[in-house]
Amino acid sequence: MSEPLTTSEQPTTTGQSATTEQSATTEGPVLVTGATGKSGRRVVERLRARGLPVRAAARGGEHLFDWTDPATWDTALEGARAVYVVQLDGTRLVRPFVARAVRHGVRRIVLASGRGIDDPRYAKDSGGILEGIRDSEAAVRESGLEWTISRPGWFAQNFSEGFFADAVRAGELRLPAGEGAASFVDADDIAEVVAAALTEDGHAGQVYELSGPEALTLADAAATISAAAGREVRYVPVSFDAYVADLVRQGLPPADAQAFADVLEPLRKGTDAYVSDGVPRALGRPPRTFAEFAGSTAAAGGWHT
Rank of each mutant, 00 (worst) to 15 (best):
D189W: 12
P213G: 06
S226K: 06
Q206K: 10
V236K: 00
R169K: 15
E209L: 15
A221S: 01
T199M: 12
A197Q: 01
V238Q: 08
L216C: 00
A170F: 06
E214A: 13
P237D: 04
A204E: 12
S183P: 02
D201W: 15
R169C: 00
A229D: 11
G202S: 10
S211W: 13
A222R: 05
A204K: 11
E179H: 13
D188C: 04
A187V: 10
T217D: 11
A221L: 03
E179Y: 04
I225L: 07
I225A: 12
I225E: 06
V168M: 12
E192T: 03
A227K: 05
G180V: 02
V236P: 01
R174T: 12
L216F: 09
V207N: 11
D201V: 15
I225Q: 11
D186W: 15
E209V: 09
R231I: 05
G171F: 05
L218W: 08
T199H: 08
V238G: 02
E214T: 15
G230A: 10
S211T: 15
A197Y: 08
A223F: 07
Y208F: 15
A228N: 06
D220Y: 02
A222V: 00
V193T: 00
F184H: 13
G230R: 14
D186Q: 07
I225N: 05
R234M: 00
S211P: 07
L175Y: 14
I190N: 01
